[in-house]
Design a protein around this nucleic acid. Structure first.
Lengths: 197, 197
DNA sequence: CGCGACGTTGATTTGCCTCAACGATTGTGG
DNA sequence: CCACAATCGTTGAGGCAAATCAACGTCGCG
């Protein structure tokens, strides 16, 4: 049912022709995922490219103390995959967990390779997609090494207003690399600064 | 002369056939760059994909106080480009500067598009290249949000032993997101811990 | 020679974490 | 439907990590 979401997603890049749509529809597998369900756990190999058709996920690593450090959120029309594990076939160090009830579309490695080999436009589309995500990630690195926690929080709200409204502050803190307590401090300071906005 | 470096670089991915080699050689422009010379400055548009055949570069953003925050180093057989500016055609916020005397090979946008359009293998090769770099960057983000400065420094030495030997500590600090003074503290603490290694 | 980049040290300040506690909300099983 | 646990947001006291500012010696380079 949800394959249409993926097909029209590609319209942002080079639209798929009818043949490409058909093959994609055949190869892709749709799954419904409950809240708090994992589609990847540490020490498992990441075997799928996952497209989020509905809902929201987080990808994170856990440290010795069990704290989560969130590498990426993915809501509708976004991809979420541990590409490193996917390529190497080695066990992942990360978790991918549903934050909301979700619907995803998954491609296995063999099927993705089939698409790349027989329909070169997929190479071009995925190249552009990941280039865009690479730029996003570069900006985040720059933020991380050059800004205070408060600046990063405000930038996050600014860049992802819809997403940040859906997330509990604990998870925003885990994404920014600060503790929930300190995020609470920051929020308090901000509301005192601009009481009427 | 240095095009051979680039051609054999592609052997790590899908090797180029003779036609692809020939076209690439024709489209690529070789330049020698002196130390401290810029190939991109803030407010300029990034017009080239740049391959480093010899030498070393850094890409960084500057804050209001004039401090550098290094997003990426690139030594031999690596790419360095502000992809965001390159794609959008908008002015860059970044600098790319030679750390050593260098030789680069540059591709203009038109030429790169020509390669993508007529030789689909370039799409596939650049897709894989940037996927690898994406994974690297994700690991750096995870480090940044989950580790102390000391841990990040040790991880940097471990991951880039050759590179770190070529760089002054001030630039390593600007890459890690700490001050040179504090990096000096860390280094002192480390040598005291393991005096004989 | 003299200047600028580099690495270091120390004193002080600040940003952020840790730990503990609390109320409000959500959700879940009996 | 209620009881209880779990998650969430917040507050406060205290501690540590890292920045700031200033000073100094070294070195390479013009």
């Amino acid at each position: 049912m949800s394959v249409g979401t993926l097909i029209s997603y590609f319209d942002k890049y080079l639209s798929l022709n009818s043949e490409e749509r058909e093959v994609l529809s055949k190869r892709v597998v749709e799954r419904k995922i409950r809240r708090k369900q994992f589609i990847l756990q540490e020490s498992d190999v990441c075997r799928h490219y996952t497209f989020v058709a509905a809902g929201c996920f987080k990808m994170y690593g856990a440290d010795k103390k069990g704290n989560e450090h969130i590498i990426q959120f993915a809501a509708e029309n976004d991809w979420i995959t541990d590409i490193g594990s996917f390529h190497s076939g080695k066990p992942s160090l990360l978790y991918i967990e549903a934050i909301e009830q979700s619907v995803i579309l998954q491609l296995e490695k063999n099927d993705l390779i089939h698409l790349y080999t027989h329909f070169p436009n997929f190479n071009r589309n995925f190249r552009v997609i990941i280039e865009d995500k690479y730029v996003e990630l570069q900006n985040r690195v720059l933020q991380n090494i050059s800004s205070t926690a408060e600046e990063r929080y405000l930038a996050f709200l600014d860049q992802y207003p819809l997403l940040s409204a859906r997330l509990p502050n604990t998870q925003i803190a885990a994404y920014l690399g600060i503790t929930p307590e300190f995020l609470s401090n920051i929020r308090q300071k901000i509301t005192k600064k601009k009481p009427y906005s």
